[in-house]
Design a protein around this nucleic acid. Sequence first.
DNA 1: GTTATTACTTGCAATTTGCAAGTTATAGTG
DNA 2: CACTATAACTTGCAAATTGCAAGTAATAAC
Lengths: 135, 135
Amino acid sequence: MTKRPSISGEPCRSPCPVASALDLIGDKWSLLVVRDLFYGSKTYGELQASPEHIPTNILADRLKRLEAAGLIAAEPYQERPVRYAYSLTECGAGLKDVLLAIARWGNEYIPGTFKPKVAAASGAKPRRPSKRVRG
Amino acid sequence: MTKRPSISGEPCRSPCPVASALDLIGDKWSLLVVRDLFYGSKTYGELQASPEHIPTNILADRLKRLEAAGLIAAEPYQERPVRYAYSLTECGAGLKDVLLAIARWGNEYIPGTFKPKVAAASGAKPRRPSKRVRG
DNA sequence: GTTATTACTTGCAATTTGCAAGTTATAGTG
DNA sequence: CACTATAACTTGCAAATTGCAAGTAATAAC
């Protein structure tokens, strides 16, 4: 089985599933990227346009790490220049319950938060599927 | 006090419940402290003894922040020197579903993680600090 | 009176963050 | 063709955060 690097590239802190999960998604931005992919964002620009304004270098870094961890997949939708459409893998999509639990907690205990409409992971395909260039 | 400070002391990034929640608990350590309190840890020493070995200054900082955010409460159990027993508030205890969802996801997608026994939040008062060893 | 324990605090180097600006490739306008 | 615009990143760097190690204060234990 492939090794799953933590968010900081280190081995897992402990075999606790919570600690191991936080090694991958325990930071301020990763779950927001996952949230946006759930809501149908696909491209770098769409992810960047979210209301939290993730810094562009952080977004690039999180996309790399989440892909390396197997939570998301990058598929080129055009060449010259190569542009990628990002989507959740089954592993990443498995975080839906986590996101829902967090959203419910936020709604209950943090005043001023809105109630999100739950969106299904979109099946719409980006144009021009082509061969991979990136390893 | 109406304002809920983020983990970095800033105002919330957006009214999204997920983003707002991550402002409070979106880091590598906060949810592990909450997890340990769920499992019955009460004192600083017990929290520090967890297998992930949280740095002591980080633990002190997180306890302050989580208390300021209203997720945990610190109650003195002895004077001279003052020692505090930490416990989850209702707000902090509300994170149980979040922890469970994360643990389930970790168990399903991260190999090598153990299945935790779910422990109820204990209402027992601390007497003498007792030795606990958790794995 | 020396050592141990608990619960922290402090110092500091290294890492991470985030703002801003730069880069690369292509499209559109005149 | 020159010029502007856009999309998707990359790079530079100051500031903030992290985490290791050591220090501190109060008390108990030997």
